[in-house]
Nucleic acid binder design. Structure first.
Lengths: 321, 321
DNA sequence: ATGAAAGCGCTAACAT
DNA sequence: ATGTTAGCGCTTTCAT
């Protein structure tokens, strides 16, 4: 028998379907004897409850759908880590889909998810049109992570990039650094630029060193810029952190592995908070309006930042904002 | 109406449920006029087919479950890329779950997946017990990627690590390198070691340089070792590739970004082949016995390997195997 | 081309 | 404590 049903189990155990159903859902009001007979029959048959049938009949599935923009993005992976941790803690079952960077795929993935009638969905997809999100929210609880959506049926959990930049600049200032270059090597300008001192922003690794007074510290905007900056500095023969300190806004496995000092809102925490918010709403313990939750950035001091030696200090203005 | 049903659409369009069902599944035998009326009603109502009901009634779901060992592992992410590409091409819908490295979680994740009665599942989980895999195969088509399982109801798609090491060694030999150190920096010995010349294996970055004759090339076993090796070499002041060539067995975004020469069976191809094999079996076009498919390694020559300069060549034995 | 009717496997409210 | 029954939303014959 490929897929034994409740009825098969009931027949084998010599009881009614309903009794088996109760046992499978762990009801306390079943005699120990019968319960064990049912469990044994189920095991012998290799019975596995059919979630489709269960969901249909019960009107809810116990499923939480998760849409991740791109699995290859470490940030997404880490958000998922937090989501999954909290889900396990609270007994929710997660189903993932991804759009892999393409808007059309993302829509399709979300549709697939919603077709399964999950009790809620978490959207970790920076680019999805707000209208799609709103549409999804008509059918089930929706929490968006990593961005903010103006809607009162959607909850949002976000980090704070500007605060992260401020924290990084403050840390460098504490270490005595006054000449800090903000490196942004990405193909598109990083939104974090707006939080940097305008004339400190450079878009090529060696650009800051063409100035009469080279920086004593580099603030890299985003993970990719961070790793690129580190190898560029090393290749250019600049000693890190002796000669120049490096701090990255945005943490990633790469920065961690290379022991680069970083500051970011921990993605895993974004995830776990998002899941908590979602499950609260599903169980009806949430305020009616859309909640928004901001996770503060955290500094991970590792091996690429160091206090400026006294001899090199100067009285230039503190870049801290 | 939170979740309009087929019946609601039928009522609004002034037709029968069956007709709506046909239209939703794109049947050709519906008059253009009625079809459009139905489609319009569906759109106006925000109708979305209920996959649960559909799956229950139809006996198959059109769903393919994917179990990924760990999202943070770039290899898994890339396998998924291949899976998803092929799935899109052939019209399958993917649902992911992960065990995040823990065996118990993995079992639970697989159970969740199987409870949804997918038409098939892809298992990208090196550590899962063969018995669990076999059990899953009792209920639906199963393809395992990245490892081999002895079972004739399971299809396997794997890479070939030993061939990758041989290819890497051959490439270095072609470049004139005779003294090659095989670096294995992982916490556990890499299985790839068995494919290396035994006395060439080192477990610390600088170990090879303590020998009287330092290597002219380094072969790193695995991605993590690869990136660790690169930064270690640079930090030690060894010029790459002028002074020493570096080749990594096992490709990853990190190696790609750092432009490290690498050789590996492309994970995306493992994925797409696995999906192809699975869908073939689902549609019944597969041989009865378990298929096994081996994807050959590929060399990605980037910036960390270089031919040994003539002056440094010597007549030591070729390490190629 | 269209409609009617019988389930798919399960839950939940009810009856015993 | 246990059995009965009426659906959940859909697909799929089978009639018309």
């Amino acid at each position: 028998m490929a897929h034994p049903t409740l009825e098969d189990v009931a027949a084998r155990a010599g009881v009614s379907r309903a009794l088996v159903s109760l046992v499978m859902r762990g009801s306390p009001k079943v005699g120990k004897e019968r319960r064990e007979a049912v469990l044994r029959a189920a095991r012998e048959l290799g019975y596995r409850p059919n979630m489709m049938a269960r969901g249909l009949a019960a009107g809810r599935t116990g499923l939480v759908g998760v849409l991740l923009a791109d699995l290859r993005d470490p940030w997404c992976a880490e958000v998922h880590e937090g989501l999954a941790d909290e889900a396990v803690r609270r007994g929710a079952r997660l189903l993932l889909t991804t759009g892999r960077g393409r808007a059309a795929r993302e829509r399709a993935a979300l549709d697939d998810l919603l077709g399964l009638r999950p009790d809620g969905v978490v959207l970790a997809s920076p680019g999805m049109p707000a209208a799609d999100i709103e549409r999804a929210a008509a059918g089930c609880a929706v929490t968006v992570v990593g961005r903010s959506v103006r809607s009162d049926r959607v909850d949002c959990v976000t980090g704070d990039g500007a605060a992260a930049v401020r924290l990084a600049l403050a840390h460098l200032a504490d270490l005595g650094h006054r000449r800090v270059a903000c490196l942004d090597l990405g193909p598109r300008p990083s939104p974090l630029r707006r939080a940097c001192p305008p004339d400190a922003v450079a878009t090529a690794p060696d650009e800051p060193w063409r100035a009469p007074e080279p920086p004593t510290a580099v603030l890299a905007l985003g993970d990719p810029t961070g790793t690129a900056a580190l190898t560029a500095l090393l290749r250019a023969g600049r000693r890190v952190p002796d000669e120049v300190s490096l701090i990255v806004v945005g943490d990633s496995p790469g920065a961690r592995a290379a022991r680069v000092t970083a500051v970011a809102s921990p993605a895993a925490e974004l995830g776990s908070r998002a899941m908590a918010v979602l499950l609260d709403r599903i169980s009806g313990e949430a305020p009616a309006a859309g909640r928004r939750d901001t996770v503060p950035p955290r500094l991970d001091e590792r091996d690429t930042t160091r206090a400026l030696s006294l001899g090199r200090r100067e009285d230039a203005p503190d870049l801290r904002q």
